Amino acid sequence: MSLFKHPVSSIKLLLGAALIFSQAVAANGKPKEIFWEDLIPKGHVQIETSAQANHEGSEQNWIQPDIEAPVVKELDGQLVSLPGFVVPLEGDDETITEFLLVPFFGACIHVPPPPPNQIVHVTIKDGVPIESLYDAIVVTGVISTKGWSGEIAQVGYSLTGIGVAPFEL
């Protein structure tokens, strides 16, 4: 199944993203491939988030854990690639321009959100057409340790996206 809905729009978007990506790579080098554990500072004991929701009315169930979880300052300004799942925030019926990238499907929607250092706020200027929000993706862009706060979660990292691709094992 294709990640992109409209082939012509996807080709234009991919060509534009490829140009921006190549400029970023030329300026910053090859993206550093990171994973969720790389967003936790060494020595920090992370409070585990349960991936199971309890819908029995407990307000405590929906409180974000480890709200003061620290970020890895050394990542600030680096060109990175990070796999994850999308929690859409802004866009239209064809593209998403702003979303949260989370380590597991359903985070921030059906379960308490992960700690802030396990959520990345992503913006992509021209948007990305995404067909299935159930599929894992890889986002490439410049990461910042400047956080973000919204109704559903407090976030430890921001990322200005320059590319999105399907995640492949």
Rank of each mutant, 00 (worst) to 15 (best):
P116Q: 08
D93M: 02
I152M: 07
V80D: 06
V128I: 14
S149Q: 12
A153K: 13
V142T: 15
V102W: 03
K125E: 15
I119M: 08
A136P: 14
V155L: 13
T140P: 03
G141F: 07
G150W: 00
W148Y: 15
V86E: 05
F105Q: 11
V87Y: 10
I119L: 07
P88T: 02
T95E: 06
P83E: 03
L133F: 11
Y134F: 12
V102H: 04
F99H: 02
G77S: 11
I143H: 11
V102I: 14
I137H: 02
H110K: 14
I109A: 05
I137S: 11
L82H: 09
F104E: 06
Q118C: 04
G147N: 06
K125P: 02
C108I: 01
E94Y: 04
E131F: 02
Q118W: 00
E90L: 08
I143C: 12
G147H: 00
T97Q: 04
V120Y: 00
P115D: 06
I130C: 12
S81T: 15
I152D: 00
E94V: 13
S144W: 05
C108W: 01
I143Y: 12
G106I: 00
F85W: 13
L75A: 07
D93P: 05
F104H: 09
E151L: 13
E151P: 05
F99E: 01
I143G: 09
N117M: 03
I109M: 13
V128P: 02
G147I: 11
P129V: 02
I96M: 03
L75Q: 09
P83F: 06
H121M: 05
I124V: 14
I137F: 13
G84T: 06
Q118S: 12
F85M: 10
S144L: 03
Q78R: 05
G77T: 02
Q118I: 01
G84A: 09
E74C: 07
F99V: 08
D93Y: 01
V87F: 05
A136R: 15
V128K: 10
E98P: 04
E151V: 14
L101I: 04
G127S: 14
A136I: 12
D76N: 15
E74F: 08
C108K: 01
E74H: 10
P113Y: 03
Q118K: 07
I109S: 04
P115A: 13
P83Y: 10
T140D: 12
A136G: 15
A107P: 14
P115F: 03
D135T: 13
L82G: 11
P83K: 14
S149M: 15
D135M: 12
V122C: 06
P83S: 14
E131G: 10
V111A: 12
F105P: 09
D93C: 07
V80Y: 10
P114E: 08
E98H: 03
T95Q: 03
T145Q: 04
D92M: 01
P113I: 04
T97F: 03
G106T: 06
L75I: 14
T123E: 14
E94S: 10
G84S: 13
V111N: 06
I137P: 00
T97L: 02
D126V: 06
T140W: 02
V155D: 15
H121R: 03
T145H: 00
T95N: 13
T123P: 09
T140Y: 08
G127H: 12
G77I: 00
P112V: 05
K125T: 07
I143A: 08
N117E: 07
P129S: 11
V111M: 09
L101A: 09
W148V: 10
V128Q: 04
E98F: 00
G141E: 13
C108V: 02
